[in-house]
């Protein structure tokens, strides 16, 4: 279990990183390395070049600007987990991050890395969908912003193109009526979830509006359950659970059958809906 030979370059600046990536179409960005390095060792990934962006300090900050909270791509999970700004302005993330793997992995793994990898069972892509986040991508042609709903394209596939670096995540600061919920079911603490759900909504009258339900572990990517969202907005939880049959197409694997995943998605929706209702 040794990686195939590869070249390594430490980026001196973001422009340098982009130039390096541009020169080698199969290059991979090395951030925390918590998924990439095992993939290299198992020879599941055999890039000719690793571009190490760990020296780019400007990508490691959490800041508030223009009604948004901005999380740099190199912010470590542990840093985000402890951040009072995130706890205050994006509490869904504070709720979700302890579920990401184990402390040692959270110490090293990065926020941007998790988004860029787009593992279908990972927590953060679903959180960004629920939060309606914007993902900032920097490439040869400059910066652009991609809505989370447009970012995740398929199994480990994103809107990132060759030469692109994911540089930051922006999340709008929520209003006082915003509500969040999160739950996941994993066989062991720290494992990828069999099924998970990140949710957001706004208290409106006696019910909920702007409901966003983002499931993970039940498809090829984090997925919005749009019919269920509509049913929940109309106050019908049973209909929302039933709608998951249309919204989700879970798979079978060694950990759980599709039928189990489908059933568990309904259980999670009831539990998370209770969080949305009860959180103040």
């Amino acid at each position: 279990m040794k990686p195939a030979p590869f070249a390594y370059a430490k980026a001196r600046s973001l422009d340098h990183a982009i130039a390096l990536l541009d020169g080698a179409p199969d290059a991979r960005v090395l951030a925390g390395g918590q998924s990439l390095v095992p993939a290299l060792n198992m020879r599941l990934s055999t890039p000719s070049l690793l571009v190490d962006i760990n020296g780019l300090r400007e990508l490691g900050e959490i800041s508030r600007r223009n009604g948004h909270i901005e999380i740099g791509a190199l912010v470590r999970h542990a840093q985000a987990e402890r951040s009072s700004a995130i706890a205050q302005l994006a509490p869904l993330l504070t709720q979700a991050i302890p579920h990401i793997a184990h402390p040692a992995i959270r110490n090293r793994g990065t926020f941007g890395g998790s988004i860029a990898l787009a593992d279908p069972a990972a927590e953060l892509p679903a959180c960004l969908l629920a939060l309606g986040a914007e993902i900032e991508v920097t490439g040869r042609t400059g910066r652009r912003s991609v809505a989370a709903d447009e970012f995740f394209k398929g199994l480990f596939e994103t809107a990132l193109g060759p030469g692109d670096v994911l540089t930051a995540i922006r999340i709008a600061v929520p209003g006082s009526a915003a509500r969040f919920g999160f739950a996941e079911l994993a066989r062991r603490h720290g494992d990828y979830a069999l099924v998970g759900l990140a949710a957001a909504g706004t208290v409106h009258g006696g019910g909920l509006a702007d409901v966003r339900l983002a499931f993970f572990g039940v498809g090829d990517r984090a997925t919005r359950a749009r019919q269920a969202e509509a049913a929940l907005e109309s106050g019908n939880l049973d209909a929302a659970v039933a709608a998951l049959q249309h919204d989700l197409s879970p798979h079978s694997d060694v950990h759980a059958s599709a039928a189990t995943r489908s059933h568990l998605a309904g259980v999670l929706l009831r539990r998370v809906a209770a969080q949305l209702d009860s959180s103040t």
Binding site: M42, R187, R188, H189, G190, D191, V254
Partner: peptide, 28 residues
């Protein structure tokens, strides 16, 4: 509760990694 070497009908081990073969861990 956890450990299982899962084979398919072709005799392929489907979970031969520490990510997919679940050993018992302290929190559980």
């Amino acid at each position: 509760l956890f450990e299982h070497c899962v084979y398919d009908e072709r005799g392929q081990l489907l979970n031969g990694t520490m990510a997919d073969y679940l050993v018992p861990m302290a929190p559980e």
